[in-house]
Design a protein around this nucleic acid. Sequence first.
RNA 1: GCGGGCGUGGCGGAACUGGCAGACGCGCUGGACUUAGGAUCCAGUGGGAUAUCAUCCCUUAAGGGUUCAAAUCCCUUCGCCCGCACCA
Length: 829
Amino acid sequence: MQGYNPQQLEAKWQKYWKDNDFDSVFKDNSRTKYYVLEMFPYPSGSLHMGHMRVYTIGDVLARFLRMRGYNVLHPMGWDAFGLPAENAAIENGVSPRDWTFENIKEIRQQQKSLGLSYDWNREVTTCHPDYYRWTQWLFLLFYRRGLAYRRNAAINWCPYCETVLANEQVENGCCWRCESEVVTKELEQWFLRITDYAERLLQDLDLLEGWPERVKIMQRNWIGKSYGTEIVFPLKEFPGSELRAFTTRPDTLFGVTYMVIAPDHPMVNELVKGTSYEKEVMDFVRRTVNESEMSRTGEEVEKTGLFTGRHAINPVNGEEVPVLVGNYVLMEYGTGAVMGVPAHDQRDFLFAQKYGLPVKVVINPYDRDLSSDSLVEAHEGPGYMVNSAMFNGLDFEEGKNKITEYLEQEGKGEAKTTYRLRDWLISRQRYWGAPIPVIYCDSCGTVPVPEEELPVTLPENVELAGDRVPALSQYNSFVQAECPACGSKEAKRETDTMDTFMCSSWYFLRYTSPDLEKAPFSSEDADYWMPVDQYIGGIEHAVLHLLYARFFTKVLYDAGMVNVVEPFSRLLAQGMVYKDGAKMSKSKGNVVTPNDIINHYGADTGRLFILFASPPEKDLEWSEQGVEGAHRFLKRVYRLLEEYASVVREGSGKKQPEREEKELRRSVHTAIKKVTGDIEERFNFNTAISAIMEMVNSIYEYVQEKEHGEINSRVLQEALEATVLLLSPFSPHIAEECWRMLGYDNSVLLSSWPEHDPAVLQVEEVEVVVQVNGKVREKMMVPAGLSREEMIDEAYQKERIQQYLKDREVIKAVAVPGKLVNLVVSGDN
RNA sequence: GCGGGCGUGGCGGAACUGGCAGACGCGCUGGACUUAGGAUCCAGUGGGAUAUCAUCCCUUAAGGGUUCAAAUCCCUUCGCCCGCACCA
């Protein structure tokens, strides 16, 4: 006996699979496709347990579906542009490119030693010119369609990363990557008009039945649709000029006592010019604009405002109200101006109190009257309208409509829908990214680089000086360009690179035709493979990557390049890996790496443990003893095969199946049914594995009861084959080895998934529980298929039940076929 | 504050549409084999009571409700986790 030697066995079969090219996949219209995709990694350092978990989940699915006959696309690639490469390059004195490709090599090796069944011919690398050429091409597509534009804007700036960030990439006022506090800067930047797609991005969430509800909710919140009214307030001091304010509460219009505009509102300057307030207000504006949005609008930050000396006129009653500039009003949302209704908005109420602005009640709750003088907090709830002229008495909801209608008739406002979503800022002031393919010419302005000149290549030889890789603006040879329109040699190249999320917004399409040289992807191939049937990745991308990729797909759909409106049909957000109650991290010293596990127990054990310890969407607690348990199980399977495969091969033993054989077959077919359902319908790999364990326990029971000669080899063969086949998606190497022990020459990968035989699951007798008043008092074996009445009759026959029924009256008898009988009796107990 | 999720043995977790709570694994206890075992195999393992192969009671965060029957449905409370957070 050799014993189970995972290291040797895994290397052997990995080589065999590679040599026989089992994982390559081709478009085949005669077969049903299935696209399994795990979010591709950023290649920093080496793999951690989180990676191992996602890949294992995806690999089980891919292997399972292949055995079920699907044509399965299961690719892998590298999200290879990004800042860490630059930082690491500086530390190690190598170029970002070399650093990145070294890491890719390392990670690819690790993935291979995990036995992951990727089609490596389709590998994509976003930092490779063959790839980013098409990222640039897509940028130009967006540009042509009016979806990419450059504007001056107050944007989020991370001082540590020395680059701007999109809104989605700021968490609690801090950089999503380095957690430095973000500040606001005014810069000329490139944006993608994702807000044009806000409504469709919102609506189509309803199509995504296979997505977790919480992810859809997060996206809904992020898009932040709200219905309201835009109202025109003429300016008293500037006849013909007006301020527009967006409100969700037009019913409170008569309660307006002031207006506040954003510090960066385009009219601020004009409003205060020449007044005694000018200097003070402009100082305030300068101070505020340079603060981060967080420090302006954070919860604990006090709202401040300054009077501009000007007044706005309420369009419904002609009242003149002061106009202020306030730090909490955001130019980016609505119109950058808000109407102040202290009586019905708590924020306005506090602001009014602070600055001594009047309070005017216009909505009374149904049960009492409010007084403007003695209000202690705003009444934001429902009620009916008062102090609102001809609208008095209307319920507030109706009032919203009536006021809006009135304003529309008068030309003083209109119903409007607003979104919280803002355009996607994609410029990055860093080196290691895809250059934005644009040239600026003094005479021609902004000129896109012609498609045939793509890619705009990153300079290769990087001078590592100081503590930064120099931005592209430092490379004169890169900056100097010829204007594609007029041929002027004085033109300058755009030196910003693209947000890496651009690269990851379409990689799933590139996998469908990875080597195509004339387009980013072939529509024909994409039409066959798309959408991704099952996408798997971390919840941290609930808004970021998953929103951007949806946006890209919709734009490509509009451009006629894909025929799907959503890229990912089903999404699995896998849980995190913990150890000792905390996320694994170097600083906590609780890290276990995939390499540790592979070297110690083998990939099969690691895969099995990770899947067995917890359902995929839940967090997983790493347990060394749990790993031991998984390893013990594999050894148990291996021993079983070592000892009994010969019985199967020799075909010895008696032929007539008896009770033990029937029981064994039943447990085998139960397992087949359970494992199939658990993988296919629920992704509950943990219970699938426990079903395999139960089957193995039954097999041991069977063989241990018998001498070798008494074993029914046909029944045992069926059991051992089922064990190996069911185990093969989870622990493929040992399965391949065991398959050979059973006498097969072909790979287990080429076998079909077993089907359970319902006839075998049929039992003549079932155990039925007899309850008296809901408490189990007796169990009985009855013929399967017994009617309710017969079951109840049967229950009455039981002596123990008779005891319980003595001196009592049966009020009701309930029976569930094949399960239980419940007799409800009078009296206590 | 708003929105969402979760709470089951010593531990990870089962229980799919309400129908025997605790599958499977870990750990623990006892035993077998053994020079030895951290290998392997067998038995036991939610708590309590009566006392002996059996019976009874309690138990799914806490309390209440619906039901013949609740971990599962409803209400209240507590605790934990995640997302958003002056969005007008």
